[in-house]
Design a protein around this nucleic acid. Structure first.
Lengths: 339, 339
DNA sequence: CCCCACTTTGCAATCGATTACATCATCTTA
DNA sequence: TAAGATGATGTAATCGATTGCAAAGTGGGG
């Protein structure tokens, strides 16, 4: 069974292919009766549009590339869900690739845009090479590249992110309000914009609360579980241990707590620990994690909407260029007043 | 800056477009000197192939759809990584959609194949409607549909899965060897082929070991964390509690253990708990989870390879039709001899 | 009854790469 | 040296949908 084409439909409906095409993409311009005849013919022939043909003619790929640092990171899944929702609503498909893979296969990121594979790109990875970034920045397609969660200082890419700084203040104040006066921070990766925003704001807020802050209370990490474990060891080794720890990610917090429990240190009794992100697991963790919630579904949806707007009406001046989404405090059992 | 086409390259290299095309896709048939001239011209013009045009002409989408039940499930990420690796090696792109979304948007799954959006499909969801399945089965494109992890009893789709039954036997025997004689099982969803395979084999193995098995030792679940919590409550409510529990997934096991810990029941001291899958988190969990490891990277790679073989040489008789991959026991701290 | 405006439809070019077939040059071999 | 084989390249049709432009049809107003 060959799949049928516009021609077949046209033949059956006894109209031209132009009319069929118009009926399908812009029904208002054809007469009521033709519209009926055509839809009948479409049904009879079982016609499906050939996207390759349309893509060629319209110079649109009707798909968007989402670039992840790592497919295996649960942080991103809900964001993807949000992106995918908006895209499929608009008849677009979602292509997925990971930074590492693109790099290993020798492809250049910009190729996806250049070779008509994707109309735009949502980047969830702030760790791109400078070289790659430069290439993106210079390219005329740069306006169809959008960063979500991550962003690039200095470069003028549109972006969606959450209130990292406000979230940090909320976290610090939650611990402060519980009565903690010695608070440590486990950071994300050193070169990452998100972790720097959180770290800077942490220091600022601690300072503005006039709390003590020893240099070794800023413990370097990298968002991962295992970094959390190492951070816990660093904390344990301190002479003067802070009574609360604000971790830059939930994964860090989980690793931190896991390591503590191996040393028979109890959370929150012996130390309060907070995360950031509110990943799915945070609620089920033992103890359930107090954290700063990012609405990842909304991040995804917002990113997709912003990008689609740029794809549909390029060169538009008054497009939203950056969205900063609110965060909220989720209090669970990993924090309590110091004892 | 307009992107350049084959024509532009041909003009610069002073050959026909046919020659350029051949140089690019089949370099052996052109002469050494032309090859050099053409690659020079490609460099000069910055030529990038237009995939829409190629896709139209070759009647290939050069992409594969991966269908997930749920983007937010961490179980799938490594499988995706594996699939993506193979696809990008072969110049294919990976499209992602979730069952729910396809359903909600009113699309039919088969449309992806029909409208030249994707050349094939890897389905990681066993929960498809009968209606959808029937449609897939009848379609001539069915041979380009492959199930991974999941499969459909009765339908003759190619598939990749792990040794579910053997994994189950290994698990039961591990517990048996530790000295457990009363073993419970928390199942996956009732209608799921995987959970049924594991459940059936569990019963068979318990029987062949001549162990006792009360009906209420088979606790229904659905692979999720929260089902694990409920299962723990069911276990707690038992008069005669089994000393070991084999859960059909790691998530179940984690939920189970989390709930126990809320009741101050210690794993493995008070009860041994095993999972199945070896998801990334299993190692970091408290206690680190004893489980049956599925090599998810290999599942993904195998699935992609099998599908690609079918796409590249359709109607080939001697294609591998089902791959069953080995599993292994990973012993960590959630199991111990009964006390 | 004619003219103009407006709606509806058709014609045909177009998007850019691939490939069957034809052509031409060069080389082998009897 | 002629015939045939081999290799390299060009010509042009093709994939299937979209769309600018022209033409045909319809209706209203003068």
């Amino acid at each position: 069974m060959k799949t049928s084409t516009l021609q077949d439909v046209a033949r059956v409906a006894k109209v031209s292919t132009a009319t069929v095409s118009r009926t399908l993409s812009n029904p208002d311009v054809v007469s009521e009766s033709t519209r009926r005849r055509v839809s009948e013919a479409v049904k009879v022939t079982g016609y499906r549009i050939n996207r390759a043909a349309r893509n060629l003619r319209t110079r649109r790929a009707h798909s968007v590339l989402v670039l992840l640092p790592d497919l295996a990171n649960p942080f991103f899944s809900t964001i993807l869900e949000g992106i995918s929702r908006i895209l499929s609503q608009q008849g677009y498909s979602m292509l997925i690739a990971s930074t590492k893979q693109v790099h290993d296969s020798g492809e250049r990121l910009i190729d996806y845009l250049d070779d008509a594979r994707a109309d735009g790109m949502i980047i969830l990875d702030g760790w791109l090479d400078d070289e790659v970034l430069q290439m993106l920045k210079d390219a005329p397609q740069a306006e169809r590249v959008l960063f979500a969660c991550e962003w690039v200082d200095g470069a003028n890419f549109p972006s969606v992110r959450c209130e990292n700084r406000q979230g940090t203040r909320i976290a610090v104040n939650h611990l402060y309000d519980l009565g903690h006066r010695k608070i440590a921070h486990v950071t994300g990766p050193e070169t990452n914009v998100i972790s720097n925003a959180r770290k800077d704001e942490f220091i600022a807020e601690i300072t503005s609360l006039k709390l003590a802050l020893e240099p070794e209370w800023i413990i370097p990490g990298d968002f991962s579980l295992s970094a959390g474990c190492q951070a816990a060891q660093a904390w344990i080794a301190l002479n003067d241990r802070p009574t609360a720890v604000f971790c830059a990610s939930d994964q860090l917090a989980m690793g931190f707590i896991a390591e503590l429990s191996r040393h028979d240190i109890k959370v929150p009794n012996d130390v309060s620990v907070m995360g950031f992100d509110d990943i799915d697991l945070a609620e089920q963790f033992i103890p359930p994690l107090t954290t700063i919630k990012q609405d990842r579904l909304m991040i995804g949806e917002t990113a997709a909407k912003m990008l689609m707007a740029r794809i549909v009406t390029p060169n538009e001046e008054n497009l939203e260029h950056a969205a900063v989404l609110p965060v909220s405090l989720v209090i669970r059992d990993s924090t309590s007043p110091p004892t």
